[in-house]
Nucleic acid binder design. Structure first.
Length: 574
RNA sequence: GCGCCCAUAGCUCAAUUGGAUAGAGCAUCUGACUACGGAUCAGAAGGUUGUAAGUUCAAAUCUUGCUGGGCGCACCA
C-alpha cells in the first residue's frame, strides 16, 4: 500500500520540477501537520525555494499549487503563513487507504526499500552476577529494535555478548575451590557466586597470598587448564540458566549468545594483524591504537588492545567480534545498545575498525541510552547500595499490577489475574522505558509507570481491552471493511491516524527511537477513546454498525501489532 | 585540566531533526449521558524553552560566551 506522504511527495516533486528543473526530490518533503487546524499534511518547500529563486514564498507556493495534481487525494490545498502549503485529505481517500490497510496482512507496514543485514548487540550481562536494573534499557531497547527492524523486512541477528571472561574469574575459581558452600550453590547459584567473589575480593585486600593465588587461577584458566575450565563452564551454565529464566519471563530471545570467551582464541591473531598493518603500535609496553589524524580522538588516551603483561582487553574482544560478524554473518550494520558512558570506547572501536577494515567495515552504530535514576535523581540503587536485581524489579512490577487489578476488577479468576498482572507489570516496565527519548536519563517512578491514565502501557492495554470487549458482546460480528463513510468527526480522526501506522514505524529505524512508536500508539488510544465515547458501535444502525466494527477491528489490530513491536503483550480482559 | 552530554509548565516528559499560536500526562479546579469496560471523556489554568549575544524569511533546535548539573578520560568492562 502506498502511504499518503508518498502520494503527496510524488505529486509535489512533479509540480516543483515544472518550476525549477534542477530541484532535487528531497525538497519535496511532506510532513503531517502538527495542528489539525492547518490541514493534514504540509510542505515547507516554497519557503526554501523562494529564497533560492528570490521570489516571495507565497508566490512560489501559488505556482506550485497550480501545477499540482492531487485531486484524488486532497479536497483542498491552501497556502498559509509564510508560505506553508497545507494539504487537506479527502474523506474518500482516507477511506480507500483504510480499506487497503484492513486487507493487508502486515497491517499496512510497508517493507523497507533496501533490506539490510543488521546485527543487534544488546543486554550482555556478566556471568556469575545477577542481572540488575542496569540491564533493562539495553534489553528492552534492543529487543524492540529487533522486532521493529524485522517487521519492516530487515534481516536481523540478535546476539547476547555475555561478559563471561573477566578478570573476576580468578577470584571466583579460587573461591570455588576453597570456600564453596555446596548447599548455597544448590539453593541459588548466582547468589553463591556473588558471595564468593565478594569474600575473596575482600580477603585478597588484606592477604596478598590470596590475591596471588587468584591471579594464578586466572592464568591457568586462560592457559586452558582442564579443572579451571570445568569450573568456569559450570559457573557459565548456571548463569545462563538464570538469565534464560529472566529472558523467558520478559519474552526476549536471542539468535546467538556468543560471550567474550568465544572470541578468546582469536585475540592474539587480531593484535598481531593490527601490528603488522601498522594500525597498532607498542607504547609504554602496551599495544595501542592511536588516532592522531582524528580531531575528536587525537587528544584522548589511545585504545589499548594488549596490556604490557600480555592480557587482552574488551577493546580487543570487540574488534575480534566485529570481524567475526562481518565474516560469518555478512552484516551490513552492527548496532550496540549500551549506555552513554561507553561512548568514548565505541568511538575508538569504530575508528580502529575503519583503520583496520577500510571499506569492508560494516556500518557501526552505538545506540546510546541514559541512566535510570531514583527519586533522588541519582542512579537508582537498592537500600543496601547495591544495584536493584532485575528479578526483584519484575516481581514488584507484577505484585503492584496484581494489587491494582484485584481492586479494579475482582471478577477475574485467579488465573486471569495472574496473567494480567504479568502482562501489565512487565508491559508497564517496558513501556516506561521505551516511551522516553533514549539518550536522556530518566527518573524511575512506580506510580507513573503503572498509572492507568496518561502515556502508559496500562492505558493502551485498557484501550485494547475495551475494543475486544465489544466483539465479545456483539451477537453478530458483521464487519464491513471494504467501504467507509467516516461521517462522524471522531471516526475520521481515528481513521486518519490509523492509516499513518506505517509512517510511524519507519522513521524509528532512522535514528533508533522506539518512543516515536509509543507516541503514535498513545495518540491512537486517545483517538479511539474519543470515538468510543462519541460513537455507539453495537447500538448503531446498519451499515454504520458494520463500519464501526471494522474501525474497532483495525484499531485493535494496530494496537496489538504496535505493542508487540515494543515487546509488549495485550490482554482480552483486565 | 581535556572531552562528551543535559537544562522546556509546580512534577515527569514530547516537539516529526530549522517551520506556523512550544504540546501531553500527573497534580490543581470545573463539567459529562446510570456508561458497547467510568481503569473513560470534555473543559480551565499553568511558559521570556537556564542566561547573554549571533546566524536567517523562520531558532527549544544551529554558533559562541556564561551559569548550573551529569558522565568519561592507558593497561576494568
Amino acid at each position: 500500500m502506498r502511504s499518503t506522504p508518498q502520494c503527496l511527495v510524488a505529486a509535489l516533486a512533479e509540480a516543483i520540477r515544472s518550476i525549477v528543473s534542477a530541484a532535487s526530490p528531497s525538497h519535496a518533503a511532506v510532513t503531517p501537520c502538527h495542528d489539525a487546524r492547518f490541514g493534514d499534511y504540509q510542505s515547507n518547500v516554497a519557503m526554501a525555494l523562494g529564497k533560492k529563486l528570490g521570489k516571495p514564498p507565497r508566490e512560489v507556493a501559488q505556482q506550485i499549487i497550480s501545477g499540482l495534481k492531487v485531486d484524488d487525494v486532497c479536497s483542498k490545498v491552501d497556502i498559509a503563513g509564510a508560505g506553508f502549503i497545507n494539504f487537506h485529505l479527502r474523506t474518500e481517500f482516507v477511506a480507500r487507504q483504510l480499506v487497503e490497510m484492513a486487507a493487508d496482512s502486515r497491517n499496512g507496514i510497508a517493507p523497507a526499500a533496501q533490506p539490510r543485514r543488521i546485527i543487534l548487540d544488546f543486554s550482555s550481562p556478566n556471568t556469575a552476577k545477577s542481572m540488575h536494573v542496569g540491564h533493562i534499557r539495553s534489553t528492552f531497547l534492543g529487543d524492540a529494535l529487533a522486532r521493529i527492524a524485522r517487521a519492516v523486512g530487515h534481516a536481523v541477528i540478535t546476539d547476547n555478548h555475555l561478559g563471561d571472561w573477566g578478570t573476576n574469574f580468578g577470584m571466583l575459581i579460587y573461591g570455588y575451590k576453597h570456600r564453596l558452600d555446596r548447599a548455597a550453590l544448590a539453593r541459588s547459584p548466582i547468589a553463591e557466586f556473588e558471595r564468593l567473589y565478594r569474600e575473596i575480593n575482600a580477603a585478597s585486600q588484606s592477604d596478598k597470598s590470596i590475591l596471588d593465588a587468584a591471579r594464578k587461577e586466572l592464568a591457568l584458566l586462560h592457559a586452558g587448564d582442564a579443572e579451571n575450565l570445568k569450573i568456569w563452564k559450570e559457573i557459565t551454565d548456571f548463569s545462563l540458566l538464570e538469565f534464560n529464566k529472566t529472558y523467558q519471563h520478559l519474552g526476549v530471545t536471542f539468535d546467538h549468545t556468543l560471550g567474550e570467551s568465544f572470541y578468546n582464541p582469536m585475540l592474539q591473531g587480531v593484535v598481531d594483524e593490527l601490528k603488522k598493518l601498522g594500525v597498532a603500535e607498542l607504547s609504554e609496553g602496551a599495544t595501542c591504537v592511536f588516532f592522531r589524524d582524528d580531531p575528536a580522538l587525537k587528544d584522548a588516551a589511545p585504545m589499548i588492545i594488549q596490556k604490557s603483561d600480555g592480557a587482552f582487553l574488551y577493546a580487543t574482544t570487540d574488534l575480534a567480534t566485529v570481524r567475526y560478524r562481518v565474516n560469518e554473518w555478512k552484516s551490513d550494520e552492527i548496532l550496540y545498545v549500551t549506555d552513554a558512558r561507553q561512548q568514548l570506547h565505541f568511538k575508538q572501536l569504530f575508528a580502529a575498525a575503519t583503520k583496520w577494515m577500510g571499506k569492508e567495515k560494516p556500518e557501526l552504530k552505538h545506540i546510546v541510552f541514559g541512566s535510570i535514576l531514583g527519586p533522588d535523581k541519582k542512579p537508582i540503587k537498592s537500600r543496601s547500595g547495591d544495584p536493584i536485581k532485575l528479578t526483584e524489579l519484575l516481581d514488584e512490577a507484577e505484585a503492584r499490577a496484581r494489587k491494582i487489578i484485584g481492586e479494579k476488577n475482582p471478577e477475574l479468576t485467579k488465573e486471569e489475574q495472574s496473567h494480567a498482572a504479568r502482562v501489565i507489570g512487565i508491559g508497564a516496565l517496558k513501556y516506561a522505558d521505551l516511551c522516553q527519548n533514549r539518550d536522556l536519563d530518566y527518573v524511575f517512578d512506580w506510580n507513573k509507570l503503572l498509572a492507568l491514565q496518561g502515556n502508559t502501557a496500562p492505558y493502551l492495554i485498557y484501550a485494547y481491552v475495551r475494543v475486544r470487549s465489544i466483539f465479545r458482546k456483539a451477537d453478530s460480528n458483521n464487519i464491513s471493511s471494504n467501504r467507509f463513510q467516516l461521517q462522524a468527526p471522531e471516526e475520521l480522526s481515528l481513521a486518519k491516524h490509523l492509516i499513518q501506522f506505517s509512517d510511524a514505524v519507519h522513521p524509528i529505524l532512522e535514528d533508533y527511537r522506539p518512543h516515536l512508536l509509543t507516541s503514535y500508539l498513545y495518540e491512537l488510544a486517545v483517538r479511539f477513546s474519543r470515538f468510543f465515547e462519541a460513537c455507539p458501535v453495537l447500538k448503531a444502525e446498519e451499515p454504520i454498525r458494520a463500519e464501526r466494527l471494522a474501525l474497532c477491528d483495525i484499531t485493535a489490530r494496530t494496537l496489538k501489532t504496535g505493542l508487540n513491536l515494543l515487546g509488549i503483550e495485550t490482554l482480552e480482559k483486565m
